[in-house]
């Protein structure tokens, strides 16, 4: 069995106004279907052990959670080595409901931007209102970061977790690193 590694092998940048870290391998399952169906809700819940969030929201704790991606799509987070077992559990729980569950863990990269300057750094790159009143804990947003699609949520106070496509990992890391370079604080928030 080959050794699974993240896209940038845990790259970190600590000398800027925010700390940027590539997060260790994270299990991710795309679950598509009618989100009102009881089977799909139950399936996501059994794997992530949190409730299904409402539109534009995410319920995450540690490496488990559920993110609301679109009106018919959830991103279910679980530990990387439990993905296969989780998929089996999801499929058996859904039963006959029409749904799609796919392991996308290796198709994505996850970054964490933390520190007092985290909002500044992200606000330079995404067309989203990041005022603390406007973007609070529990919210989840898919958007554009410079030229690539990303999704992010506030993991805890001043800690953003960002998900992007694995092939964009280097680009996103470099973007964040430049946006966080020393002396570039905007102090808008």
């Amino acid at each position: 069995m080959s050794r699974a590694v993240t896209a940038l092998d845990g790259a970190t940048s600590t000398d800027g106004i925010a700390t940027i870290t590539e997060v260790a391998l994270q299990g991710m399952i795309t679950l598509r279907g009618d989100l009102a169906s009881a089977g799909i809700k139950k399936a996501a819940k059994t794997v992530a052990s949190v409730d299904v969030p409402g539109a534009g929201q995410a319920n995450c704790s540690d490496d488990r959670g559920i993110c609301w991606m679109s009106p018919d799509e959830l991103l279910v987070l679980c530990p990387y080595d439990e993905v296969d077992a989780s998929l089996d559990k999801i499929r058996s729980t859904i039963g006959s409901d029409h749904a799609l569950a796919v392991d996308v863990s290796d198709a994505r990269a996850v970054f964490r931007v933390s520190g007092a300057g985290a909002r500044d750094v992200l606000a330079k790159l995404v067309p989203v209102d990041l005022k603390p009143q406007a973007f609070a804990g529990g919210m989840f947003r898919r958007t554009r970061m410079a030229q690539v699609p990303v999704a992010f949520w506030l993991h805890e106070e001043d800690v953003f977790q960002i998900v992007c496509f694995r092939s964009h990992a280097r680009y996103v890391f470099d973007l964040l690193k430049v946006a966080a370079q020393p002396g570039s604080a905007v102090d808008f928030f």
Partner: peptide
């Protein structure tokens, strides 16, 4: 109208 997000045109 599908996800309720308000954004500027480059996200669309």
């Amino acid at each position: 109208p599908c996800c309720g997000v308000t954004s500027e045109e480059t996200e669309f």
